[in-house]
């Protein structure tokens, strides 16, 4: 069981919600710092740029405490275990698209996204999906460029037209 949240009865503290409470506390601190920085900048207006960040930071701080308290009460209901492999595939698709986009262009990068997502959902082979996805995206690219005059990122494939 690689699940980070042990799905046991209500007595044990809920670790995941502790982590969320901690994340909220960090966010509160970050925004609090921003508010402090902004408050130091002189401004003539009655309510300056720091007022709302201050309120939000306080609210986040209180919510961090509330979440921690609820986490102490324990896991409310059993959460089914999540599979890691499919998530990794989908994320690899999204990250891969960002990495490929600058030099490979829209069609190839987005074709990879399609193939990786399909693989994440258990459908291969990756290369066949990649080809189909890239071809589809190339058509979309042409429609955008000719029809709307919008330039999506171009790569070797797009330069052919």
């Amino acid at each position: 069981m690689s699940d980070p949240t042990p799905a046991t009865s209500g007595s044990k503290p809920d670790k995941a919600r502790f982590v969320i409470a901690l994340a909220l506390a960090v966010l509160a601190a970050v925004i609090g710092c921003e508010a402090w920085r902004l408050a130091a900048i002189p401004s003539y207006t009655a309510v300056g740029p720091a007022a709302f960040p201050t309120l939000i930071a306080i609210g986040l701080g209180l919510l961090a405490i509330a979440n921690a308290v609820e986490a102490m009460k324990g896991v409310e209901e059993e959460r089914p275990r999540d599979e890691v492999r499919p998530i990794v595939w989908v994320l690899a698709g999204l990250v891969g698209q960002i990495v490929l986009l600058p030099f490979a262009g829209f069609s190839i990068a987005t074709g990879w996204l399609f193939a990786a997502t399909a693989k994440g959902f258990g459908r291969g082979p990756v290369w066949a999906h990649f080809l189909a996805g890239a071809a589809l995206c190339f058509v979309i690219y042409v429609i955008f460029a000719k029809g709307l005059q919008l330039s999506l990122p171009a790569g070797p494939l797009e330069r052919l037209i």
């Binding site: 990122p153 171009a154 330069r159």
Partner: peptide, 10 residues
């Protein structure tokens, strides 16, 4: 930058 460089190169 690379996006533009690539686009321009074409």
């Amino acid at each position: 930058g690379a996006v533009v460089a690539a686009a321009l190169a074409s």
